[in-house]
């Protein structure tokens, strides 16, 4: 169990950090969230990661990394239903630059996998950057104890478990049930089975899934955001060019900052409130150290 080892290491590492105040102080210099705006999706992604202390803070030499974009729909990048391919590409490049042994890109889409992978532009961009782009493979589905508060077990693609670290790279869109879909909703793409039934308790499911997959880094793509008719959009008028990415370790905080792009206060979002209550992360933006930049 590589991931378990990883968590052990983190636990051990934080213990060490606690015992050595000097190191801890250095760690604290990094912002909780980096928000970068600019014309180029590649540049703002790179800048956001740099603001957090560089990719080396998250990816170690020899790691097998899984980058989880939203490739949910048979839509083109301009329609903003899937993660911007250049943001995905940049994260793949960064991981490989940090010495990752392998970077996998995978998602279980709602439309035919081949169509979504190709038409979203993600397959080509990620492959060019050196990632292994994988279609979800039903043979790799396994019922996994998720140990969530609500969701006890579900079928998960084992690709998500057999890697060292996961980078979550969702896109920010409206959604009629959770109001917005960002990082925490993105985990439904790691599941198989009759996923549509999960909507009956979606907020709780999202919280359990996010806690289970626990990405080492969350990068919210808001280069284009879908402001209506989500999560698929369709018309270009459903899309707002926002030219922003947010990166952070606290995935609840990343989603919380994302809600403000839609003019919503994080505390109005039931799933964020609940996640905060349960101690999964911060939603009070005033308590967060946010570094804002424009490139």
């Amino acid at each position: 169990m590589k991931r378990r080892d990883f968590f052990k290491n983190i636990a051990f590492g934080s213990l060490v950090l606690n015992l050595s105040p000097a190191l801890l102080a250095e760690e604290k210099n990094f912002p909780d969230l980096a928000l970068v705006q600019g014309e180029s999706p590649e540049l703002i992604t790179r800048k956001a990661i740099a603001s957090l202390g560089g990719i080396e803070r998250f990816v170690s030499k020899g790691d097998v990394i899984l980058v989880k974009p939203n490739i949910g729909w048979d839509r083109t990048p301009k329609q903003a239903a899937c993660t911007n391919p250049n943001v995905v590409k940049t994260l793949v490049e960064l991981s490989l630059e940090a010495g990752a042994k392998e970077v996998k890109v995978i998602d279980n889409p709602c439309n035919q996998a081949k169509r979504t992978y190709i038409r979203s532009g993600i397959a080509e961009a990620a492959k060019k950057a050196g990632a292994k782009v994988l279609f979800p493979n039903p043979h790799r589905l396994k019922k996994i104890p998720l140990k969530g508060e609500w969701l006890k077990e579900w079928e998960v693609y084992t690709d998500f478990i057999e890697v060292d670290k996961i980078i979550n790279v969702p896109i920010a869109k409206t959604h009629s049930l959770s109001r917005l879909t960002m990082g925490m909703k993105n985990w439904l793409g790691a599941l198989g089975g009759n996923r549509s039934q999960l909507h009956q308790k979606l907020d709780q499911v999202m919280i359990d899934l996010a806690a289970f997959f626990k990405p080492c880094l969350s990068v919210l793509d808001a280069y284009r955001i879908l402001i209506r008719n989500g999560p698929q959009g369709g018309r270009l008028s459903d899309v707002k060019l926002y030219k922003t990415v947010v990166a952070g370790i606290d995935y609840v905080a990343v989603d919380a900052l994302g809600t403000t792009f839609f003019g919503i206060n994080p505390s109005e979002m039931p799933f964020l409130r609940l996640a905060h209550q349960k101690g999964h992360g911060e939603i009070n933006l005033e308590k967060l150290k946010i570094e804002k930049r424009t490139v």
Binding site: C110, S176, L177, S196, H199, Q200, R228, N229, D238
Partner: peptide, 16 residues
């Protein structure tokens, strides 16, 4: 009386 919305979520037209 439980939420669902799956059909609405998948509806591909814009507006839905």
């Amino acid at each position: 009386g439980t939420p669902c919305i799956v059909c609405e979520e998948h509806c591909p037209t814009s507006p839905k």
